[in-house]
């Protein structure tokens, strides 16, 4: 996402990124990012915590007006519970990189085929 942020900013539109992966974001060096120390897959907040999700989105957007120079700003939200051992350990959530459209459930697949046929994914 850092490459996308850099390209959009270079085209003249300000960007602000959420991140929970410090090293990946720092390496890509986007214009602005706000960091939450959360397990991956929850960049925008704790599930069901609407007030935290609102605060995170607001902080990220305000960063586009308040950060004086490129960098990563740390937010102080706390993840409920310990998660770092899993993140540093051998648990790997990657699955086979299938080349056909994948769906959350079979109802989605049926609805997509009904609407679009069996063809390749559209660029929309």
């Amino acid at each position: 996402m850092g490459l996308i942020a850099r390209a959009i900013e270079a085209s003249g539109v300000a960007t602000t990124s959420l991140t929970s992966a410090w090293s990946i974001t720092a390496s890509a060096n986007p214009p602005r990012a706000v960091f939450n120390d959360f397990p991956l897959g929850h960049t925008a907040g704790v599930p069901g915590d609407r007030e935290m999700q609102l605060a995170i989105a607001r902080s990220a957007l305000e960063a586009a007006w308040t950060m004086p120079e490129p960098g990563i700003t740390v937010l102080d939200h706390q993840w409920p519970g310990e998660w770092r051992d899993d993140a540093r350990g051998p648990v790997d959530h990657r699955t086979e990189r299938l080349e056909t459209p994948q769906y959350q459930n079979e109802d989605d697949r049926a609805a997509a085929i009904a609407a679009h046929g069996e063809g390749p994914a559209c660029g929309c």
Partner: peptide
């Protein structure tokens, strides 16, 4: 749908990866 991260939370509450509601 994604091949690389645990989507348990995202499939239950898409707002954790997609803050449109916020």
């Amino acid at each position: 749908t994604h091949f690389a991260y645990d989507q348990t939370a995202a499939q239950e509450d898409p707002s954790v990866v997609f803050p449109l509601q916020a």
